[in-house]
Amino acid sequence: MISFIARRLVIMIPLLALLSIVSFTIIQLPPGDYLTTYIQQLEAGGQVVDEAEITRLRAQYGLDQSVYVQYLKWMGGIFRGDFGRSFHWQAPVMDVIMDRLPVTLILSFSSLVVVYVVAVPIAILSAVYQYSVFDYFATLFGFIGLAAPDFLLALVISWLFYLLTGAMVTSLFSLPFRDAPWSLAKFVDMISNVWLPIIIIGMAGTAGLMRTLRATLLDELGRAYVTTARAKGLSESRLLLKYPVRIALNPIFSTIGWLLPALINGGVLVGIVLNLQIIGPALMQATLSQDMYLAGSIILILSVLTVVGTLISDILLAWLDPRIRYGEAN
């Protein structure tokens, strides 16, 4: 097992180098750079842009250097913990990300917890009492959750919320806390606002997980080993949890690692609709305005998390399922 993990870690090094090149290339793909976009904005506003000023800015941002030099400089900085500067925010990329990270993590993590806590029991009941009234309701909810796009859900729910309470959902924080530093009061304020985005972001995930787990579990419930356990004298609930549920959950728990990038980049559209200060919308804006170091850094972080998440998933799967663990040893 240890050699397996070590081998995987070694493979990760060239993979990550490759990923950084790909990330940087993607950022460079659209024609022009941040300054072209910036000049366009200024000209659209009727301002005259001084040619000398542009050259000065281009030199200041290092945009006059070749792509390779830009890449190497950027990578060199990353090893020192410096991801470059965001043109748009006029601040280090790291600051822009760290600013949004706590809220992003709280939001993503709590919606993830909600997804599992809600979906797993419903799926189990739904499969055990297949074709019952409960199952039909769960199925209906599952299809709605899967079919409705999250931004639409966000619009509809915040409209309903407005109709019912007269209040608008505009941010995670009430006005007095919006620019205040973190404090207990601000945290409490966030808790009172955070449930709505959590429901919206979690909806599709809950529906999807519910449908998948119900299907796998239905498959497992008919297996002979369930009958064996029943013939042994185990009570229904104990045998359900020990055998079919355990086996049906294996693939689901082992894919938890894959959710790692989603934790950072989840809820982009919901974030835009509800005006949430999270990373997803910032990435979108950065790509639109060709804010290359911010966009590149977020994409790079997402790629790293994807690779790490896959490794975590593989380790989890081997740990949970002896068939895979032993297959690896042979």
Binding site: A224, T228, A231
Partner: peptide, 12 residues
């Protein structure tokens, strides 16, 4: 039971 493979839990 008949099938000793499927009648035993694969993960225990």
């Amino acid at each position: 039971f008949q099938e000793p493979m499927t009648s035993l839990s694969p993960v225990h």
